[in-house]
Amino acid sequence: MPSTVIVGGFYGDEGKGKIVSYLAMKDNPVIAVRGGVGPNAGHTIEHEGKKYKVRMLPSAFLNPNTRLLVGPGVVLSLEVLLKEISEFGTQDRSFVDYQCGIIDDSHRTADSQGRLKESIGSTGTGTGPANADRAMRTLKLAKEIDSLALYLDDIPNAVNFALERKEQVIVEGTQGTFLSLWHGTYPYVTSKDVTASGICADVGIGPKSVDEVVIVFKSFVTRVGEGPLKNEISPEQAVAKGWQEVGTVTGRQRRAAEFDFELAKRSIMLNSATQIAITKLDVVYPECAHMQSFSDLSSPAKYFIKTIEDKLKVPVTLIGTGPEVNDTIDRRNQ
């Protein structure tokens, strides 16, 4: 069954949107389906001189042939979802599950004050309180919202039907492994599981329906908000290295650290990863910017990739060398 699950290996912000966009353009999937939490996860994509920030739709929207689905495990911001559908012109190919939960103003208010905001560093988008209401069985669902009538579908059925027909499907995760409610640095985590297993449950596919799990690691580690970060460097050091970044949704400065092999090894285990995608190699090795061939990389960059493969025992099949979708080295058929 030609299904590929894309998940984040660290604390989010690994560049999953770029990888999903590249695979969508390269492999021409019939469906891209998003699991994960909700609009608290933003993916940034650059293509042909334009920059896109996506929070609800799958990052595969650049391929006009790909249907864009959102699984029942995701909570929706109506405003964000409808804005993206309109902005990207995907009205005829965007669908959400009848059972997606709906974020309302009370959830956003609860998420923007008190302990969630001050101690946990929540995004303020309402996703955590909405998921709490879902656990209490009080959350409103998409099938109750008139403005979504044209976009409702049985997403697990659509995805599994495509897989039975051996059509290409991309399953897009959000956040990162160590923000998982079960496997992350609790309590500084998101409001549900975001490992590959959790993402598959969100969209309604079982373990036997998964072909490949691509885990995305950035060439260094970043984290937004509170919580532990091993070997964290100072903001001044991050600026000096060119590693300073801000979150897509929050606009907050991301904290930074060197690539963490032990963390990556655990992430491989938790996700049953079969492939690794490395992003932002050009940030650590500027001489490699925009390259599309592994043979053109500098010796230090090649050594870094080889070290990752040797230590993690999983092949690095995709390497990001710049922000543009096509700034990518594809080693899958080598």
Rank of each mutant, 00 (worst) to 15 (best):
A289T: 12
V7M: 02
I120T: 01
L139A: 04
V246L: 02
L270I: 02
F178R: 00
K311Y: 14
W243E: 02
D27W: 14
V5W: 04
G15R: 05
D296R: 04
Q91I: 13
G12K: 11
P58M: 08
V224K: 12
V37P: 05
E309K: 08
N231G: 09
G121F: 03
F10W: 06
Y11T: 14
Q175D: 06
R223P: 10
E309G: 10
Q91Y: 00
A41V: 01
G320K: 09
M56S: 13
V210T: 05
T248G: 03
K53T: 10
C100H: 04
H107T: 05
L23V: 10
D27P: 01
D104L: 12
A135I: 09
A289D: 04
A201M: 12
Y285K: 04
T185H: 14
V37Q: 03
Q99F: 00
E324Q: 11
K143D: 09
L163H: 02
L57V: 07
K218Q: 11
H107A: 07
F304R: 11
V5Y: 06
I205P: 01
L141T: 15
I205Y: 03
V7P: 00
G49E: 02
V33F: 15
N326C: 10
V249W: 00
E87W: 07
A301E: 04
G320D: 02
H183L: 14
G225Q: 08
G204A: 06
K16L: 13
T274L: 01
Q113H: 08
L116K: 10
A196I: 13
R332F: 05
E236M: 13
Y52A: 04
T174F: 12
K306I: 06
E167M: 07
L81H: 12
R331W: 03
E258I: 04
N40T: 08
E232F: 09
A257S: 15
I319Y: 00
V216W: 07
D104Y: 13
G206Q: 03
M25W: 01
E84V: 13
N157F: 13
E118V: 05
I103D: 05
A132K: 11
L76A: 09
C288V: 03
E118H: 07
G121L: 09
K311W: 11
T317W: 01
T328K: 12
V239I: 15
V194P: 12
V216H: 05
D97T: 08
P286C: 02
Q275D: 15
V283H: 07
G36K: 07
V80N: 07
Y11L: 11
F61A: 05
A135K: 12
N40F: 02
R67M: 04
E236T: 13
A196F: 12
S299L: 14
R67F: 14
E46D: 05
S272G: 11
K83N: 12
V96S: 11
A277T: 05
T250E: 09
Q244G: 03
A289P: 02
N333P: 02
F95C: 10
P286Y: 07
V33L: 08
K166E: 15
T127S: 14
V216C: 08
S298A: 11
L312F: 13
M136P: 02
L78T: 08
V5K: 06
V239L: 15
E164K: 15
G173N: 04
S59V: 00
L163E: 07
T222P: 01
